[in-house]
């Protein structure tokens, strides 16, 4: 990399369409698993709260999955899902998202103050009805906090998928590294950061919208 500058702007200018495609691919690969993770975490979390005995074994399983190196899981999946397919990358990412979202869902459901739960029961909510219409909405701030962690880490992890042929912006890292050409690497890092930031802001906005009551709750100890 003797005289190679960090960024060659013309390259970026020439490859805007290409970068856009990679960004879109990256967003889908990274965020769809988080969405699926959320759709699984909510019913699982509700079930674990209703039947607390399920929670320990289930969270142990997800923690072990979370501990597995992503690359290893990608490789293991290739025979089943194929090389360079979205599924190979998205299946492990879904599990990672679940590993983050299940505990936050359960914590959020459990964080509902006891008097609130008792009042709901005394008003005439059945156990499931209470979980879905009192505890779950009250857990929204927790869920969104979990989503922020899951989404950002998924966006970062998705790039590893490039090593098995499908990593969205991660491909820019492999490419730049192999050609000793830093411009794609820099562009990739910048776009990943922008994507992560945009998603995070979106989630903060969603929290304001869905849980306006939680915005200033801290400090108003009730």
């Amino acid at each position: 990399m003797d005289d190679e500058p960090i960024v060659r702007w013309y390259w970026i200018g020439d490859h805007l369409g290409y970068l856009g495609n990679l960004l879109a691919d990256h967003a889908v690969i990274a965020l769809l698993p988080v969405l699926i993770g959320l759709l699984l975490a909510v019913p699982l979390g509700l079930t674990c709260t209703r039947f607390p005995r399920l929670y320990q074994p289930l969270s142990a399983v997800f923690n072990i999955v979370y501990a597995l190196p992503s690359l290893a899981v990608f490789v293991v999946l290739i025979p089943y899902t194929g090389l360079a397919t979205q599924a190979t990358v998205m299946i492990p990412l879904t599990f990672y998202a679940l590993a983050v979202l299940l505990p936050t869902t359960v914590d959020g459901l459990r964080a509902v103050p006891d008097p609130v739960r008792q009042a709901a029961t005394a008003m005439g909510y059945g156990p499931w009805h209470r979980l879905t219409s009192v505890e779950l909405p009250a857990a929204v701030p927790y869920l969104i906090a979990g989503l922020r962690v899951a989404a950002v880490s998924s966006i970062s992890l998705a790039s590893v998928g490039a090593l098995v042929g499908r990593g969205g912006l991660g491909y820019l890292f492999v490419d730049g590294f192999q050609r000793t050409f830093p411009t794609p690497i820099v562009a990739g890092i910048a776009l990943i950061a922008v994507l992560a930031l945009a998603v995070d802001l979106l989630l903060v906005g969603a929290r304001r919208l869905l849980a306006p009551w939680a915005v200033r709750e801290k400090g108003a100890g009730s």
């Binding site: 103050p113 008097p115 609130v116 739960r117 008792q118 009042a119 709901a120 005394a122 008003m123 009192v134 909405p137 009250a138 929204v140 849980a211 009551w213 939680a214 709750e217 009730s222």
Partner: peptide, 14 residues
């Protein structure tokens, strides 16, 4: 049956 408890137990999200 109406029920009132010590900490009011209001639903925070409503």
């Amino acid at each position: 049956i109406g029920y009132v408890i010590q900490q009011a137990g209001l639903f925070p999200h409503r």
